[in-house]
Amino acid sequence: MKNMNMLLVGVGGQGTILASKIIAEVAMLEGHDVKMSEIHGMAQRGGSVVTQVRMGEKVYSPLIEEGEADFIVAFEMLEAWRWSHYLTSGGTMVVNEQKIEPMSVLTGQREYPAEILETLAERSAKMYTLDAPALAREVGNLRATNTVLLGALARHMDIPLSTWERAMHNTIPDRFLDLNLRAFAAGYER
């Protein structure tokens, strides 16, 4: 198999890191080599965050180059916009329909780009959007937004559901497991 590259992008505090942990666990269970790179330190201060996961037979670089992401999971629309040029032709984008305005937009210096979803949909054949926070609230807790998005991603990946479930068992503390399994299912079935 050719290496598979996945970008998870969002805003500090949105839970991208836990989501990528689950993906990395999935890769391990499937017997792949895997590397995952994250930049933290500033994560809690509401800055842009990106996590990169690469899996395959043998992975050298932990980083994904422009135009080579097979999947982009965007936890926020502006971040989808920022990273969209990393998508490979024929790649899949899963975008949470949520807007978090950065300071320059809040103060009115810059405008939040209009028609992000429309433009991205025109560019990529495989683009899926969902209101993940709403689905998370439906299953019981806003904080499961990240696993809703994973569910949506899983639907478009070629990995058995049972592997995802096992990965969640292995990474999520017991008391939150049930909530997250429901959130995952909500994202998957939507």
Partner: peptide, 29 residues
């Protein structure tokens, strides 16, 4: 990076699927 090395050596790179968008930055606050 991989691309920096390849470009420096005159080798092909995949490159961005379209020019990067001029996106408002989101620095930590």
């Amino acid at each position: 990076s991989v691309s920096i090395i390849r470009k420096a050596l005159g080798l092909s790179v995949t490159g961005p699927s379209h020019p990067a968008e001029d996106t408002p930055v989101r620095p930590p606050v």
